[in-house]
Computed example of a mutant assay.
Amino acid sequence: MKSAVSWSAYGAAQLLPRLIGRRTRGPLFLTNCKAPAGTPTLDVCPETGRARLFYRRAEEIFDENTLLLANPLASPEDIEDTDGWTLHRLRHGALTHDAEDGTSTPMLLARSRYASVRPGVDSVARRVAERGPAARRRR
C-alpha cells in the first residue's frame, strides 16, 4: 500500500522516512509505551499499539530534533537561542507546493480542512508577473 503523504522539497522531507518507516497508517508521533485501555482507536498505532503523542509534546520533540537542520550555520553557542522546524510547517509543506503549482483553492481547502489557504509570496509575485497589467501590455 502506497502512503498518501507527499512533502516535495521541504527540509522536513528528509526526516519523514525516519519517522514513517514502513508504516502506511496510524499516528506519526507516538509515545514510548503501549496505549492505555480505552484510548480511541484513531489515537493508537495499529502496528505497535503505542498511543499518539499530545500535540504540544510532539511539537517540543520535533523542534528539539530539527534545530541543526533548521539552522545549519548557527554556532554551537548560538544554537540554544534558535528554533527548529514546527509541526505546522511539516503539515503544510505539501499544501504550499500544491498551491504554488496551481492546485485549485477548493481542492486545497478540502485537503487542509481549513477555511482559507494562502499561496507563498513568490508564487503570488510570479502569478502577477505572468498575468498582471504589465504582462497584458506585452501581449
Rank of each mutant, 00 (worst) to 15 (best):
L108E: 01
D63T: 13
L28Q: 02
H97I: 13
F54G: 10
G93W: 00
A51T: 12
A13G: 15
H97D: 15
E59N: 10
T66H: 06
T66S: 15
D122W: 00
L95T: 14
R22P: 02
A70S: 10
H97C: 14
L53E: 03
H92C: 08
D81P: 00
S75D: 10
L28M: 08
L30D: 00
P72C: 06
V121Q: 07
I79E: 02
W85Q: 05
R52P: 04
P40C: 08
D63S: 14
R137S: 08
G120M: 00
T66P: 08
H92Q: 11
T39D: 03
A134R: 09
E59Y: 04
R127K: 11
D43C: 15
V121W: 02
V44S: 00
P133Q: 06
L30T: 04
A99D: 01
V128A: 08
A35N: 00
R136V: 15
L53N: 02
A51C: 10
A125Y: 04
V5D: 05
W85A: 04
T31Q: 08
T66F: 05
D98G: 14
S123V: 11
H92R: 12
L90Q: 01
S123Q: 09
N32I: 11
A12M: 08
T103N: 01
A94L: 06
I79L: 15
A94M: 06
W85P: 02
P17L: 13
A134Y: 03
P106C: 03
R18F: 12
T105S: 02
R23P: 04
V44N: 03
E64V: 07
R138D: 04
R23E: 09
S104D: 14
A110T: 13
P72H: 03
T103S: 08
R22W: 05
T103G: 02
G84A: 03
R91Y: 05
S123C: 13
